[in-house]
Write a protein that binds this DNA or RNA. Sequence first.
DNA 1: GCTTTCAATGTTACCGGTAACATTGATTTC
DNA 2: GAAATCAATGTTACCGGTAACATTGAAAGC
Lengths: 331, 331
Amino acid sequence: MEDVARAAGVSRMTVSRALRSDGPVSDETRSRILEIVKKMNYVPDQSAGSLSTRKSGFIATLVPSLNNLHFAESVQALNESVEDIGLQLLLGHTDYSRSREERLIESMLKRRPEVIVLPFDGHTQRTVKLLKQANVPVIEQWEIPEKPIDYTVGFSNADAAKRMTLALVERGYSRIAFVSESEDAWTRGAARRAGFEQGMLEANLSPHRQVRFGKPPISIHDGYLIGMQYKEHFADADCIFCVSDAPAFGVLSGLKELGVNVPNDIAVVGFGNFEMSRFASPKISTVELGGREIGQQTGSLIRRLLLAEAGIPKHTPINIQLKWRESTRTR
Amino acid sequence: MEDVARAAGVSRMTVSRALRSDGPVSDETRSRILEIVKKMNYVPDQSAGSLSTRKSGFIATLVPSLNNLHFAESVQALNESVEDIGLQLLLGHTDYSRSREERLIESMLKRRPEVIVLPFDGHTQRTVKLLKQANVPVIEQWEIPEKPIDYTVGFSNADAAKRMTLALVERGYSRIAFVSESEDAWTRGAARRAGFEQGMLEANLSPHRQVRFGKPPISIHDGYLIGMQYKEHFADADCIFCVSDAPAFGVLSGLKELGVNVPNDIAVVGFGNFEMSRFASPKISTVELGGREIGQQTGSLIRRLLLAEAGIPKHTPINIQLKWRESTRTR
DNA sequence: GCTTTCAATGTTACCGGTAACATTGATTTC
DNA sequence: GAAATCAATGTTACCGGTAACATTGAAAGC
C-alpha cells in the first residue's frame, strides 16, 4: 500500500480511502489511485484490515456433513445470500459428532467470526459455554432446540413426522412401521421417531412397529439390508416410514429384489425429499424440508443482524411440505 | 493477552510462547499460564498472529458446486487431511461459471491463502494472471489441463471415457450412443465426449450417435426427458453412455416408464459412480473417479508443499475404475 | 475582506499478535 | 573462581491496514 501511495503521490490513508467505495476522496484522485492499484496488481490484505476495524467478515458455519444434499444446498444458499456483502464462510463439518463440533468451534473462534451458524443436534456443555462467551450472534439451524442459545432457523422434526404419520393414517394406513438408526445420537432422527410415536398414539394405533438399525447417519445401504428382511420385520405392516429418504431408497431396492410390490404389498415413505426420491421407482412419497430456504433465511437474518436492525425475531420458522408420490396409495 | 500476562506476572511474549506448543518456556510457567488462559476464557486472535507470521493458515478452495457428492466428498476429505495442522478451508463454489471463479479468486486472495485449490474447467485469462501473481502454490484438480499453472491432482476424463468406450465394445456393444450437455461450457464433460469419440473411431465404429440436451451440469431430470424419447433417439442403439451418473439415472427412469428393459433392450452406462447408481434398479455400470482420493492426495500434497519438501512431483495421478453392474450385459 | 464551512487529505496511534534481538541468572567448564 | 554457555524471559519494533483527529485551502456567507 505504501508503494501505491508513493506512486500516486498521496498518503497511505488516501489509498485506503480510495479502495473503499464510500471513502471521501475526490473522483480524480480515486481514479488515479485505482489505476495504479491495477497496474501494480496490488491486492489489499483483508486480515490486516480486519484487525483494525474489528470486523473479520467471517461467518463460522458448521454442517453435519457435506455428504448430504440437504446441508450442501443450505450452505450454498447461505453463501450466495451473503457473499455480495463481502462475507466469507468458514466451513466445517461435524460428522455428527459433538466433540468434533466443540473442537471446530474452538478453532473457528480464533478467526473472530461475526456470526456463528450451526445445526442443532445437541451440543456439549463446553460448546454452549464457548458459544455464549464468544459474544457473537449464534444461529441454530434445522431442528428447533428447547433452549435456544440465541437465534433459530428451522422447524420441528417431531411435528413434521407427526404430520406425516397422521396423513398416512388418513390415507388408510394403520400398521405403520418406523425405520430409524440404532442409536439416538442423531437428535433430529430421534425427534422424528418421537413425532411418529405421538402421531400413532393420537390415532389410537400402535407405535411399536419399529426397526432400529445402522449407525447415524443411516445410509442407503442400511435401508437395503432392512428391506431384505421384509418377512422378519414387515410381514404384518402396511407401510414403512423411514427416518430419511436414504434408507427409504435402500428399502425400496431391497423389496424389489425380493419381489415385494410397492405400493400394493406395502407402502414406503421417506423424509427429506432427496433428489433421488423423485427418480426412484416407484417415486418415493416424502417430507420436503426446504434446505435452500433455511440457507436463504439464515442469510437474510445475518444481514439484518449485522445492520443491527431492531426487532429481529428470535425464531424463523421454515415450512415443510408432504410430497405424495407413487410409493403410497392414494385413497 | 495483556490481561493474561498481567495475571500470570509475565510478559505478553511469554504468554505467546506458552500458547505455541514448541515455544521455549519452562513447564511450570507454561502450565500456570495455560490455567489462567482457561480461567479467563482467553481465545487468541489468529488474524493478528497471521499478520505477524505472514502465515494465514488458509487454503482457498473452489468447487464447481457442493450440490454434487463428488465435490462434496473431495472437499470433506481435503478438510480432514489438513485440519490437524491447523489449516482452514476458505470455500467457494463457482457454479460452473468462469467469471464467478475469477471473482471468487479475487476476493479470496485478500485473505492471503497459503495454497489455492481449484477444479480445472478452463479459466479466464485474468484468473490465470491473478493465480500466477499471487505467488502461492496453485493446485488444479480433477481434469488435467494441457498447460497447468502449477500442480495438478487428477486424471484425464478423455482417457477415462475412452477406456469405458473400448470396454463396452469389448463386451459386444457397437451402436453406442453418447448423452451429454447441449453446450461444451463444461470442459470435463466435453473431454469425456471427446474420449468417447476417440474410442469409437479407434474401434472403427460410428461416434455420431449423440444426444445433446440440457445445460451443464446435466441433471437427473434432463436424463429422464431424454429417456422418454427412446424411440426418437435410441431406436437403433444398443447402449447409452451418459456423461455422468445423474442423467444415466434419469434415463433409466424414463426407459422404465416406457417399458423398455435394461439391459436386455438396451444398456445404460454412467460416469462418476454416484451413490444412487449402486441402488438404482438395475444398478448402473459406471466409472469410479475417486473424489475422496483427490481430496486426500491434495491434502498430502499441501502438507509437503508447506514443509517446503524437495522433489515434489507436479502431477499426482488419480486412478479411475470401471464398475460393472446390472445395467450392462456381461459377455 | 474576513470569518465560517466543508471537502480533501495528512498524521499519529493502535488493532493483537510475533520476530528478532537483548537480558538475566544459574550451571558448566577448565 | 572467572569465563563460557544456555535456558528462560523481557524489550522493541513491526506485520498492513484503519480510526480518530488534525490540517489545509477553496468556496460560501455576511
